[in-house]
């Protein structure tokens, strides 16, 4: 069995605001193997972005702070480091070098006052011993790899001269420049046109295959998940509610929330009167103390759901779900419910 590149255990990231302590990420665990694509799925505000920022050590502080858990990162040499415990200086050596990130908003994620070439070489010169000329050559090569035409010229242009899709390619070139072991992409295609989306996804898939870079893909788009991911973690209100390989999650979802997400996808083949939507809205983080956080919106809620907090239950090899429907304590009833829950 391969060791995971990244192994997050019991991560807790809270925001300390005037309105009180908000547990944006509450006891989240997951891992990513070498060369694997892990999807982290959930609605806006479920904590998936904060999870990725926590891994990168970029949670805005104040008000945010990681208050618990471990983030074990394995270097290509095999050495494992807990990123929560390393110094800021060490973190800056890892960040952008072994671990890189692409953000959601390509339009605002590049510094408007510096040329594209400079923004790519900046990281290269920080992490490698390349001189100016070598770094520039490498930057142009990276622009070519991510499919930017006239790479030489684009390197001397400013971000406002490029389209959104081009800028996202630049972001990818920048992130991949130092050959990271792990690439985190936070909704990389959300702000782009559908046709450009497909190109960007294809590019990331290609880089993942060719360079063996592990990819942590944050998205709310199950289509993207189906296209890209090997395994999926579904998050709801700061917690992991289900995880498994992509086939299981998409074909046989167990958690009522995952089922709802999949049902709310419009289908090309059927023309339904109304699109399905999960009733209600995501609860405000921290507003639910006891019980399952999805209980208020779940079609299968029973007493226990509001009284106790469910644990993440292993269902099969690599598949786990946080729901009492599958708790063996419920005895024979569990099976019935599970079939009810699944049948739609």
């Amino acid at each position: 069995m391969t060791e995971p590149v990244l192994n997050v255990e019991g991560l807790r990231t809270h925001f300390f605001t005037d309105a009180g302590e908000i547990p944006a990420v509450d006891d989240v665990s997951f891992y990513i193997n070498e060369g694997e694509v892990l999807g982290i799925v959930g609605e806006s505000g479920c904590g998936k972005s904060v999870t990725s920022l926590s891994v990168m050590g970029l949670v805005p502080n104040p008000p945010g702070k990681i208050i618990g858990g471990t983030i074990d990162f394995r270097h290509s040499g095999g050495k494992v480091e807990d990123l929560r415990r390393v110094s800021g200086r060490r973190m800056r050596q890892i960040r952008g070098n072994q671990m890189a990130m692409i953000f959601q908003e390509p339009m605002t994620s590049l510094d408007p006052l510096y040329k594209i070439g400079y923004q790519i070489t900046e990281g290269l010169r920080r992490h490698t011993k390349m001189n100016k000329k070598e770094a520039h050559r490498k930057a142009v090569d990276m622009l070519k790899i991510v499919g930017i035409p006239r790479a030489e010229q684009v390197a001397t242009e400013y971000p406002h001269q490029l389209s959104g899709g081009m800028r996202q390619r630049v972001m990818i070139a920048m992130a991949m420049a130092c050959d990271p072991e792990l690439l985190i992409a936070d909704e990389p295609t959300t702000a782009l046109d559908v046709t450009i989306q497909a190109q960007i996804l294809e590019l990331m898939k290609k880089l993942n295959k060719e360079k063996g870079t592990a990819l942590m893909l944050i998205t709310h788009d199950l289509g993207v998940v189906a296209e890209m991911c090997d395994r999926v973690v579904v998050m709801y209100a700061g917690k992991v509610v289900e995880e498994g390989d992509v086939r299981t999650i998409l074909k046989h979802p167990k958690h009522p929330y995952t089922q709802g997400l999949i049902r709310s996808l419009p289908k090309m083949s059927e023309r339904e009167e109304r699109l399905y939507s999960i009733p209600g809205t995501v609860p405000k983080p921290g507003s639910i103390k006891d019980g399952c956080r999805f209980a208020a919106r779940c079609p299968h809620t029973f007493d226990r759901c509001v009284e106790e907090t469910p644990e993440l239950l292993p269902l099969a090899e690599g598949h786990a779900c946080r729901c009492f429907l599958y708790d063996s304590l419920e005895g024979g009833g569990a099976h019935d419910r599970s079939t009810t829950a699944e049948g739609h």
Partner: peptide, 27 residues
Amino acid sequence: LRSDYIRTVEAKGIHHLSVVYRHGFKN
């Protein structure tokens, strides 16, 4: 300092002083 591009620079692992003066102050 709250803008997206500053976060991008930080994600590259650039030193604070460079983040604040070169990218922050210039903007």
